Simulated assay, not measured.
Amino acid sequence: MRTQDKPTAVEEQTARRGHSPLPPRMTRARVWLLGSTAAVYAAIVVGVLTTSWLVRLDWQLMMFRPYKQWPEVHAFLDYFVVLGQRGPTALAVLCWLGYCAWRGRTLRPVLVLGTSLLLLNISVGAAKIGMGRLGPHYATRIGAHEMWLGGDIFPSGHTANAVVTWGVLAYMATTPFARRVASLISAVVSLSVGLTTVYLGTHWISDVLLGWAAGLLVLLALPWFEPLMTRAEVRLLALYRRLRSGTEASAAPQPVAARVAIISQRAVPAQPGTPVPEMAGVGARPDGWPHALPRPHTARHERTPVTPTGSRRPPQVAHTDRTARDRTRTTGGTAS
């Protein structure tokens, strides 16, 4: 009879995920979307480098100055654009995914967020530094693409971060309905954040388009990193259990014999020639200090009752000074 092979740690960890969905696979449709998004990404970069109609659109919107056309919404959009900043959004999403990880007893939500932000920082940061495009407020020549001039706004970091950070919530959704709702919300937030940066004049429209593509590439590539995240989860949980078991072993109470031995070693030895008081029922320990001999313990009902004899009142003690005062008062009163 053939026996089945023992499952690996990764398979056991995946089998225990009855409370959470299995990680998405890199299907053919996802690969096709990934390739199409990469093609759009490359087309945007080429369009900016060749100073095509995309650059002309950038300058037209910049000259239009939307923040001057609708100044009444400027204060609100200044706060709304925070939804695309990496620090506040990552902290907010981390709180929710951390709760999900605690409830589901799994590290996968936190690992997915960390992996996606790491991929985002590497890909978007490299593109920003490599192309060095200046923003609308720092443009030097009208109609130019403003590339390789030391800037860092191409692609838009706010837009890409909004796509990835809020898109992770849809990626981690447990039901199809929740995934659709989360996808719709993340799409609306990322589109709004990107257009807000154009309104404020901090980004060209081509920066926003490339930011959408860059964030979508990270989300579509996440299934390729699922095996790595699973192995990392297994190792981290094993390390946590090992550290916890070691802490519990060190904090466990020691046996009585071991504690007695430790106390005996720490005791100060008696100096030679020091007299040891002799008491009834008291023996001597090897270190010279008195030690009470063990006695048998009897229950209360086994003890012999003892009837007290005599009176319980304390004996009357004659106070000589009080008697002398009373005599003096009596004598003095008679004499007078």
Results as ranks from 00 to 15, higher is better:
81 V>W: 04
310 G>W: 02
64 F>M: 11
275 P>F: 08
188 V>Q: 02
188 V>N: 07
83 L>H: 02
140 T>Y: 04
46 V>Q: 10
61 L>S: 00
165 T>A: 03
170 A>T: 03
162 A>H: 01
45 V>L: 10
42 A>N: 09
161 N>C: 09
32 W>T: 15
173 A>W: 08
164 V>T: 02
65 R>C: 03
311 S>E: 06
53 W>F: 08
2 R>P: 12
164 V>W: 00
142 I>Q: 11
129 I>H: 04
168 V>N: 02
128 K>A: 01
136 P>F: 01
96 W>R: 05
116 S>T: 13
157 G>W: 00
329 R>K: 04
48 V>H: 03
176 P>R: 10
174 T>H: 15
41 Y>D: 05
39 A>Y: 10
97 L>Y: 05
226 E>Y: 09
130 G>S: 11
232 A>S: 10
277 P>D: 00
62 M>C: 05
128 K>N: 02
177 F>C: 10
133 R>A: 03
111 L>N: 06
51 T>Y: 15
33 L>F: 12
208 V>I: 06
265 Q>R: 11
173 A>L: 04
167 G>R: 03
335 A>N: 10
162 A>Y: 01
131 M>A: 04
162 A>P: 09
99 Y>L: 09
19 H>Q: 15
65 R>M: 06
198 V>K: 00
86 R>M: 15
293 L>V: 13
309 T>V: 04
67 Y>W: 13
209 L>R: 04
325 R>V: 08
198 V>P: 01
214 A>R: 00
36 S>A: 15
59 W>Q: 05
24 P>L: 07
326 D>E: 14
197 T>Q: 05
43 A>F: 08
174 T>G: 12
237 L>D: 07
77 L>N: 06
312 R>G: 14
327 R>W: 15
153 I>N: 11
37 T>I: 13
226 E>P: 13
20 S>Q: 14
212 W>L: 06
263 I>F: 10
148 W>C: 02
241 R>S: 06
46 V>C: 15
53 W>Y: 13
149 L>Q: 13
210 L>R: 02
27 T>Q: 09
52 S>Q: 06
262 I>Y: 15
270 A>E: 10
279 M>P: 02
59 W>F: 03
185 I>K: 06
226 E>S: 15
141 R>G: 07
